[in-house]
Design a protein around this nucleic acid. Structure first.
Lengths: 346, 346
DNA sequence: CAAAATATTGCAACCGATTGCAAAAATTGA
DNA sequence: TCAATTTTTGCAATCGGTTGCAATATTTTG
C-alpha cells in the first residue's frame, strides 16, 4: 500500500521494523521504558525513511504548541528589532517557534493581535504595549486559560504577570540631574503617552531631579507627543519660539533627540552651548549625530533574552516562582550634546 | 459529562443544537451546502459557547499550516526590520502566521533555520540569504515537497523560485557614474561577499561605469568586508594610508558609509571635497550624518510586501504564473556627501 | 399528486502521535 | 525448575476537525 502523500509516519516506521507505533513513539522521544538497542534501530530506520515528527498530531494530543507569541508596537525600530533578535535567539535555542506581530502602536490593533495569537494557541505571550492602550481587558482571554504573559519595556501591572524593564524613574532622574549639573535650569521633558510606564516613570524622575535641585516646575516644559521624527521636528520648532528659551532637553528616545538637534541647528542654535540635549536608548544614530548624543544605554538585547527565558521557565514549570519584575541595569552615556562645561574635542 | 479542559469543540456546539459535527464544521467555514439559517444559529451558539477553531486538528487533517517561514540574515538592521514590517502586514492581512528566524549571516545557521522551519511544516518560505551561503542544497528538502520559496534582496537563481529585488547593477552603475560626474577618478568600491547578488551586481555596475568613462580599473580599489561598522572603520583607516588617496567611495550600505565618514573626518579629511561618499539603502542615519549621505533609496517595505504577496498567491494557486523575478524601482538620492561641484548650504 | 431534482444534513473513517494499562518477555530468586 | 519481579512492548482509545458518500428533507416539474 503506497501512501499518497510522501509523509512517513511512526506507523510506517513501526511496520518496517515489525514493532508497534507506541514503541516507535516512545523510542523517538527517548522514553526510559524502551530498550536501548530498540531505540537505536528505530532512530536509524526513522532517519533512513525520512520520518519527521508531526507537530500537529502531537499538539492535538498534547494541547500545547511549543509556540510563543510576540506583540511589539513596531518592528522597524532599532530598539525593538534588537530586542526581537534577543528573543529569537533564546526561543530557537529552546526549540520554540515564534509568531511575531505588530500592534502598530494602536490599542485596537493590539487587541486583534492578541486575539489572533490566542486563536493560534500560543503557549505564552511576550508583549510590549502599544502607545495608546488604555486597559487590559483584552488579556483576559489569556488569563482565563492560564496562558502566561511576560511584559517587557512597556509594561503593565496586571494579574501578577512578569515584567522585564529598566529603572525608568532612575534613568529619567539621572538624565535630568546630569543636565542640571551642566548648568541647565529650564529643561524640557519630551515624552509619550503617560499611560505607558516608560514615559511616566521617566517623567517622575525628571520631576524628582527638578525638585531636589529646587528648580520650579513649569508645565509648559512638558511636551507629550508620539515620539516620531515628525514630532521631534515640531517640538524643536516650538522650542525655538519659546520666550525664555529652554537650555536643556531630555527626550525619551534618540530618534526625536536627533530630529530636534537637526532642527535646532538649522535655526542656528548651538548644541550644547545654548541647549543641551539628552536622549534615550543609545541607538547607533546617537554616535553619528554631531554633536554626539548623550543618552541612556538600554540593554535591548538582554531585555529580549531575559523576557524569553523567563517565559520559557514559566512554561516548563508553571509553579516557578513568579518573580514579578526584573529590572536590568541602564547606563547614562555622556557625550558632546550635553557637555556645556568641559567641552572636549572637535 | 464535563470536559476536563475548558475547550469547546464542534462536538459541543453540535450537541447543543442537536446537529452533527459535520454540519457545524461546514457551517463555520461557510460551506454552501448548509442552510443560511442553520449557519446563523451555529455561528451564534459557537460564539456564545466560546468555541475557537483548533488549528491542529485542522492542520493534521488538511496537511497545511497556514504558516509562512521567514529567514533573514539579521533581525536588527534597519533594512531587514522594515522589510519584515512589510511582510508581517501582508501575512496578517491574509490570515497567515509567521515564523521568523535569523541565520546570523551564517551558512551553517541558515541550514538549521531552514530545517527547523521545514519541520514546523511551514507552507512556504521567504528568505534573504546569509552572507556566506555557498550552495543551495539545503533547500532541496523544500523543493522535494513542493514548498514554495520566494527570495528577496539576497537572492539565488534556483528551481525557478521567485525573487524580489531591485536592479543592483543599475544602482551600482548610477552611484558610480554620479561620483565620476562629480570629478572622482579614484573610486573605492566597498562591498560584501561576491557570492551575494547584491554585492556582485553593484560591483558589476561599478565596473561598467568605470569602463564607460575610460577610467582604469585598479584591483586595490575593491575592498570586500562583512559590511559592519567595524569594517567601515577599518576600511577608512586603510584608505587614509593609501598612497594616491582615493577621491570617491561607493559602499554597499549606509552603515559602513557612515562609519567611514566618521573615521575620515577624525583624520581631518574633508567630505566631500577630498573624498566623496555614496552609500546604499537610504537608512534614516543617512540624513543625520554631516554631511548628509548620498545613497540609493531601497524600497524595503515594498520588497517585504511584494515578497509576501507573491508567496501567498503561489500558495493559493500553485499554478500561478511563476513570474521568476520582480524588480522594484530604486532611486539615487543625492545629498551633500558627494556634491563636489555645487556645494550648497551649511 | 407522484416522480424527479435539488438542497441539507449525518455517518463514519480518516489525519498521526500519545499514553494508561494490560500483556509478553526477560531476569532473578529460591 | 518454576514462581515472582522487573523490563519491554503492544492495544486501543483519544485529541478535534474534515469530507466523500449516503440519507433525508424540500422543491420543482410534468
Amino acid at each position: 500500500m503506497v501512501k499518497s502523500s510522501g509523509e512517513v509516519t511512526i506507523y510506517d516506521v513501526a511496520k518496517a521494523l515489525n514493532l508497534s507505533p507506541s514503541t516507535v513513539s516512545r523510542a523517538l522521544k527517548d522514553h526510559p521504558h524502551i530498550r536501548k538497542e530498540t531505540k537505536r534501530k528505530i532512530r536509524i530506520t526513522a532517519g533512513e525513511m525520512g520520518y519527521r515528527h508531526n507537530k500537529f498530531a502531537s499538539n492535538l494530543r498534547l494541547k500545547h504548541t511549543n509556540t510563543i507569541g510576540v506583540v511589539v508596537p513596531k518592528l522597524n525600530s532599532y530598539f525593538m528589532a534588537t530586542t526581537l533578535a534577543g528573543i529569537e535567539k533564546i526561543t530557537t535555542e529552546f526549540g520554540y517557534g515564534l509568531i511575531i506581530s505588530q500592534s502598530q502602536e494602536s490599542w485596537r490593533k493590539e487587541i486583534s493581535c492578541i486575539s489572533t495569537l490566542f486563536n493560534s494557541r500560543v503557549d505564552g505571550l511576550l508583549i510590549s504595549l502599544a502607545y495608546d492602550t488604555k486597559n487590559m481587558n483584552h488579556f483576559d482571554i489569556l488569563f482565563k486559560k492560564d496562558i502566561p504573559v511576560v511584559f517587557f519595556d512597556r509594561v503593565a501591572d496586571c494579574h501578577g504577570c512578569m515584567s522585564i524593564i529598566i529603572d525608568n524613574y532612575k534613568a529619567g532622574y539621572e538624565a535630568t540631574s546630569h543636565l542640571i549639573e551642566q548648568g541647565c535650569r529650564k529643561i524640557i521633558y519630551l515624552g509619550g503617552n503617560m499611560l505607558r510606564n516608560v514615559y511616566s516613570e521617566r517623567y517622575r524622575g525628571y520631576r524628582q531631579a527638578l525638585d531636589e535641585n529646587k528648580i520650579d516646575f513649569d508645565q509648559n516644559m512638558v511636551i507629550i507627543s508620539d515620539m516620531s521624527v515628525q514630532a521631534g521636528t515640531e517640538t524643536a520648532r516650538k522650542i525655538i519660539r519659546m520666550k525664555p528659551r529652554p537650555d536643556g532637553i531630555f527626550t525619551a528616545n534618540d530618534t526625536t533627540a536627533v530630529a530636534i538637534i537637526v532642527e535646532l541647528e538649522k535655526a542656528g542654535i548651538k548644541i550644547p552651548e545654548e541647549i543641551a540635549v539628552v536622549g534615550f536608548n543609545n541607538e547607533p544614530i546617537s554616535q553619528v549625530i554631531k554633536p554626539n548624543l548623550t543618552t541612556i544605554d538600554y540593554p535591548a538585547r538582554e531585555i529580549g533574552e531575559i523576557a524569553a527565558t523567563s517565559l520559557i521557565a514559566k512554561l516548563k514549570d508553571s509553579q516557578t516562582a513568579n518573580l514579578s519584575t526584573i529590572v536590568l541595569k541602564h547606563n547614562l552615556i555622556i557625550r558632546q550634546s550635553s557637555l556645556k562645561n568641559n567641552n572636549a574635542d572637535s
